[in-house]
């Protein structure tokens, strides 16, 4: 049974009189991967930093495993593993020394556990080298190792795929899904790579100008992802879709028609297009569903 691991209640943050976060409510359950999306300057990183106690709340409350991050910092943080922005480590120490240093700051992380996470992130060969010799991808792996070594109930990853090569990204995705579904961690991931989020996450929350504008399951996004038509006579095609099939239609940049409509209606529409001589070239499923949703929700935004 899934347990509520993280809860944000009406979280506000003002910095120097400027409202950065304007009342965020969010929940995260064990065994679930939540993607946190938002344009630059939307307050994504600020929110993540507030969750791990790096930034104080102006108003509201954040509970991790039932403990308030403001009032019971230590108890709350015992449940959290995180990488915030870049995976910075002490570069004059080796990877292993870094892990040892961080492990010694709390109880219960054994040497065996450390070895286990090192092999889990595929760093066994290089763990005794100094961190300044590491590539960004290797630092990222070390960062993940330190985040998961205490077996957190909540894992927070800010831009985790940064610097990983395609094979690394795919491995990382598998690791995250494994941690969530087998060890029932709750994972909160922020990323700009929407395709990545779509493949990795169970739910997404989209944040815009300090407010969560949409929380939905990836399943839902894929389900109403819409159908694309490439036709010669765009205006006529649009008119038919709107008038005869009551669909909401947008004309995309590449001069295709996008309509959110059930798949079962597609043969009928295609048949009607043929009859009306719209000049149908192809019809397809919209592949960039999350990107479209993201842009639709956040478009026209200035960075504030």
């Amino acid at each position: 049974m899934s347990v509520r691991v993280l809860e944000l209640r009406n979280v506000h943050k003002s910095i120097k009189g400027k409202k950065i976060i304007k009342g965020i409510d969010l929940e995260l359950f064990s065994g679930e991967v939540l993607g946190f999306l938002g344009p630059n300057g939307s307050g994504k990183t600020t929110t993540l930093r507030m969750i791990v106690g790096l930034i104080r709340l102006t108003e509201g409350e954040i509970l991790i495993g039932g403990h308030s991050i403001g009032k019971e910092f230590v108890k709350a943080m015992e449940n959290v593993g995180c990488i915030i922005e870049n995976p910075e480590m002490y570069d004059y120490l080796s990877g292993w020394e870094n892990l040892k240093l961080l492990a010694s700051m709390e109880k219960g992380i054994t040497k065996e556990r450390m070895k286990e996470v090192v092999s889990l992130v595929g760093m066994v060969k290089r763990i005794d080298d100094k961190v300044y010799t590491y590539s960004l991808g290797m630092k990222q792996r070390l960062g993940i190792a330190q985040a998961i070594m205490r077996r957190p109930k909540l894992l927070i990853l800010d831009e985790p795929a940064n610097g990983l090569d395609p094979a690394g990204i795919s491995e990382f995705r598998k690791l995250i899904r494994k941690l969530a579904h087998q060890e029932s961690m709750a994972v909160l991931v922020s990323s700009h790579i929407l395709a990545e989020i779509e493949m990795m996450c169970d739910r997404v929350a989209i944040i815009k100008q300090g407010e969560v504008v949409r929380v939905t399951t990836v399943e839902n996004i894929v389900k109403d992802q819409g159908i694309l038509w490439k036709v010669r006579d765009i205006q006529l095609g649009k008119k038919i879709l709107e008038e005869e099939f009551q669909a909401a239609v947008t004309i995309k940049e590449d001069q295709t028609l996008l309509a959110f409509i059930g798949e079962e209606q597609v043969p009928g529409i295609n048949k009607r297009f043929m009859e009306a001589d719209v000049g149908l070239i192809y019809a397809s499923r919209n592949q960039k569903s999350l990107e479209d949703l993201f842009l639709a929700l956040t478009e026209g935004d200035e960075i504030v």
Binding site: V52, G53, L54, F73, V74, K75, M77, E78, V80, C82, I84, E85, N86, E88, M89, Y90, D91, L102, M105, E106, Q146
Partner: peptide, 15 residues
């Protein structure tokens, strides 16, 4: 400057 302060501050140890 290097950002490692975040590593320290996100341990279950009061500041």
């Amino acid at each position: 400057t290097t950002g490692t302060i975040k590593l320290l501050m996100t341990r279950p140890v009061p500041r």
